Amino acid sequence: MIGLITLAADTGVNETVLTGALLLALPVAVLGGLVSFFSPCVLPLVPGYLSYVTGVSGTDLAEARRGRMALGASLFVLGFSAVFVSYGTLFGNFGLTLDSYRETITKVLGALTILLGLAFMGVLGGFTQREFRFHSRPAMGLAGAPLLGVLFGIGWTPCIGPTLAAVNTLAFNEASAGRGALLTVAYCVGLGLPFILAAVAFRRALGAFAWVKRHHVWVMRAGGLMLVAVGVLLVTGVWDRMIADLQVWSSTFTPGI
């Protein structure tokens, strides 16, 4: 993650932060990552992922060395982060290229985000509930962890698809490759940090996972409601007005130091 954050900084992150435009989008991106992690087609498989990327059998995970567990989880997170950050960079660059049509495209993407939010809540059926994933797997253990992360990033839908699509819509709206990269880094922090924490404290994490699994319907509804809300803000133009207000505020803000 450190390397990805450095890359984002080299492509214009400092300018982004100073404008204040991401003060609203970054928390949404982090929350989107967390919602993706706790979705019912990711959370139940966390023990399996950790077992695979560390080379430790599922029954031995609780007793495995924390260093190995943390390293395997981190390599896995780096793998899917590389994929997602490239998506964000691409969408941000598209936003810059198509700036003259940005308002219309943003509304269309906002409407799509609303539909994805409804699908995430389970309101829509059919194709929105199907899963598409790669069934080929790399070698088990630390060496295969980054590649498994890449495969996860490319082929795991629909559970992470709606939230990631919303973040990419925000990246498009930012009209900057650097800002798009930063937004998806934030998304990857929200999605990846729980993986690493679960690896470091696996036994304690099992209790938290059990609670979330019992209440997964409400988790999905809350996540879908967040996506619908973001979509409505984009379609109505309220998002752009909020960003403009934040830019004005940040331009007049003077640090106390």
Rank of each mutant, 00 (worst) to 15 (best):
I2D: 08
I2L: 14
I5D: 05
L7V: 06
A9N: 14
V13I: 10
E15I: 06
E15V: 10
V17F: 10
T19I: 07
G20V: 00
V28E: 00
A29S: 13
V30K: 02
L31G: 05
F37R: 08
F38L: 14
P40Y: 08
P40W: 06
P44T: 09
L45D: 09
Y49F: 13
Y52R: 11
Y52N: 03
T54E: 02
T54Q: 04
V56P: 02
V56N: 01
S57N: 13
S57Q: 12
G58N: 10
T59R: 15
L61N: 03
E63F: 08
A64E: 02
R65Q: 11
G67C: 00
R68Q: 08
R68V: 00
M69H: 04
L71N: 07
L71T: 13
G72H: 04
G72S: 08
A73Y: 01
A73C: 01
S74A: 14
L75I: 01
F76E: 00
V77H: 08
S81M: 11
V83D: 07
F84G: 04
V85Y: 02
S86A: 15
F91Q: 01
G92V: 00
N93S: 14
L98H: 10
S100W: 04
T106C: 04
K107A: 13
G110W: 01
L112S: 06
L112V: 10
T113V: 14
T113G: 05
T113P: 10
L115D: 08
L115W: 09
G117E: 00
G117L: 03
A119L: 05
G122P: 01
L124R: 09
F127E: 13
R130S: 11
P138V: 02
P138F: 02
A139V: 13
A139I: 10
M140P: 00
M140E: 12
G141H: 06
G144Q: 08
L147N: 06
L147R: 09
V150R: 08
G155T: 06
P158K: 11
I160D: 10
T163L: 10
T163N: 12
V167E: 01
N168I: 00
T169L: 05
A171Q: 02
N173K: 09
R179E: 00
L182W: 11
L183T: 03
L183Q: 03
A186S: 09
V189F: 13
L191C: 04
G192C: 08
G192E: 06
G192P: 04
L193D: 03
L193N: 05
F195H: 06
I196F: 03
I196Y: 03
L197E: 03
F202P: 01
R204M: 07
R204I: 03
A210R: 15
W211V: 12
V212F: 01
H216Q: 15
H216S: 15
H216R: 13
V219G: 06
R221S: 07
G223R: 04
G224F: 05
L227I: 07
V232K: 11
L233G: 11
V235E: 00
V238W: 14
V238R: 15
R241L: 11
M242N: 13
I243P: 01
A244F: 05
D245F: 11
D245K: 15
L246Y: 11
Q247Y: 05
V248F: 08
V248W: 09
W249K: 15
T252P: 02
F253C: 05
F253Q: 11
T254H: 11
P255I: 06
